[in-house]
Each structure stands twice: as structure tokens, then as C-alpha cells.
Amino acid sequence: MYITITAQKLETNYSQSSADFVDYLEKENEGLTKEDMEHFFNQYGDEISAKEVVKEIDGNTAKLKKKEPKFYSITVSPSKHELRKLENSSADLKRYTRELMKDYAASFKGREIDGRPISVDDIKYFAKIEHQRTFKGTDKQVKENQPFASKILELKNEVRKIERGDATGNIERLKLKIGKLERDAPHQQNGIRIVQGMPKEGNQSHIHIIISRKDASNRFSLSPGSKYKASEVEMHGKKVKRGFDRDAFFSKAEVTFDKTFGYNRNYAETYKAKKDFIKSPKLYFAALMKLPANEKAMAFKIMGKSGITLIPNIPTSKAQLALRVFKRLRKGAEIAVKSSSIGI
């Protein structure tokens, strides 16, 4: 499970409206019939139009300064293992989103509205399920294929020059070289070189959520930003934690998923495990090696599937294991923890 919380981008040329972001989330509906479209929804409503979303988010910005974000976005990306537990991706993820937003509201520790704790009814949000992902230029597969892509483009330009009569050469020989480069590129999908913009295969279902910075009454600012992390303040003569507790939110998001769908989460999949690895690799490996044999085997399988490179024939000794795979695992774990963060 990867969850990111990102503030609205505010640049000199960026619209103060949520329209650009909402239009981006509508991209997957292009060319589909109404019956096949994925619509926006919130805690109690379905089939909410993009126009209504923009109206509600843009109209809920009282007293916010021009350079303050008007909304935040959450992206929830279940793993392939988690997605396999769903019977109906759209319906199940919609149900999960509504439970997740209860966790989001509860993560505003110590915050109150009209003398009561914040509830999901105080959060103005709209969500949308998407089922496709495409490879980006920043993806490892695209970056490592780039030298091949550059050479292929160079050869194709040579072919075009010969066809126009601007150069001489053997077109068939150049095409054979192009074909070899296509096959030799390190990252392929169904026998085709992976390029930027190519749809990713398999179940890619995920959730996008747009959340107003202001509460539903448009009176209070509810920011999950990093500078608003839970901190101790004095209230009613007692010290209490106040602010958004992101660690609690990410951890509870996993618990809620597991409870909702009866998912048996492996240690290696937990947000806590990834954080533990960064803080204390020794304790992390100790916990890993204490797992039952079948769970331990699954843990290494999950780590490998997540893009964390493991060496062959992993030794069973904790000391050897920590020593030999630490450097390779640490980078992957840091990326995973960074993914589960608030991008401000």
C-alpha cells in the first residue's frame, strides 16, 4: 500500500482553481460511454460531476491567502497482492475510500470543531477510482531504456534521410540494427520495449482523492501538511497532541484495508516495517528472521516484487543477511517510506 498526500501546486502561472487537477482526473473517461465511466464520489454521494467538484472545492476557500494551497490530493495505490483480494475493484475501492476518510479525519489529533473531535462529516472531499497507469519518464524502466531509445531514434532518422534522398546507405541493414536494439533494451512488456506513455499491464487500480483545505463549514483550516504534524499543546489545563498524525494515518490505512477485505498482511508489507528498517536495520532483520518459514519466504518475494533487489541464495544467518543485503535493500526501503509521505 502506497499513500501520498500532496499539496496543491502553487506557481506564478498556476490557476487558483481546482479545475486543472479535476480535468486531469477525468482523463481516463475520455471516449467512454456514461455507463463505462468512473465518476467522482464522496462519503454519501455517487456520480458527482467534475463541474460540481470544481464548484465545491473552489467555493470552500474562505480567508485563505493567495499563496496558500486550496486543496490537498491523496493517492492510494494498493499493491498487486492487495488488489487480488478485491472482488470488484471499483465497488470495493469506493467502500475502502469511505472507511479511509474516517481514518483521515481521526488523524487530526486534538483538533476540535464546536467542542467535538473532527469527524469525516467535517472533511469536504471527492474521490475517483482509476484503473490505468502509464510509464513516466522518471520510471526506472524508461530511464534505463533511454540509451537504446536514443540510438533507435538516431538510426530511424538515418533511414528517413536515405528515403528522402538526402543520404546514402543500406536501409535494410539499419532496420536490422533497430530491431536488435528494440530486443536488447533491458525492460520489455509483452515483448515490446517499454517507453514513456505505455500503459502498464495488470491490475493498476488506484484511488485519487481531492480534499478541501477548509472544513465542510468553510470556517476552519484542516491541513495535513508537514509543518502541522502532531505536536503537544496545552488545552483545558492538559497537554495534548494537536495536529495531523500522518504515521497514525498510514498505519491505520493498512489496518482498515485488512479488516475490510480480510487481508493477511505480511510483515514486509507494513508501513511500520519500512520505517523500522530505516531506523534500525538490525531490529528489522531480527524481526524478519523470526517469521515462520512460509511468511519469511513470502516477505522476500514481496520485497523482490517491490523492486528491491535481493541477492541469490540469501543466507539464513541474521548477521550475514544484514551485512550482504543491507546496502541494496536500504535504497528500496527509503523509496517506499518516501512514497508514504506528505509531499509539501
Rank of each mutant, 00 (worst) to 15 (best):
G262C: 09
P147T: 00
S150E: 12
P69C: 10
Q16H: 12
R246H: 09
K70N: 12
K156I: 02
L310D: 00
R324E: 12
K140Y: 15
G197I: 15
E26L: 02
N157G: 04
E269A: 09
I192N: 07
T138K: 11
E234D: 06
A293K: 14
M101S: 04
S231T: 14
D166Q: 14
K70F: 03
F126A: 05
V54N: 03
I129E: 08
Y271Q: 04
K63T: 14
I171K: 03
G237K: 09
A149T: 06
K143Y: 01
Q146H: 08
F40K: 14
H236S: 11
D166S: 12
A185R: 13
G237E: 06
V255Q: 15
K151F: 01
L93T: 07
Q188M: 04
P186S: 05
N170E: 06
K301L: 02
E334W: 06
P147C: 01
E295V: 00
N29E: 07
A268T: 06
K80S: 10
D114K: 11
A105D: 12
E154H: 12
H187N: 15
I311R: 13
K27A: 14
K259S: 09
H236M: 05
L329C: 12
E87G: 13
S17R: 02
V240A: 06
G304A: 08
K296S: 01
G169M: 04
G202K: 13
K200W: 13
Y2I: 12
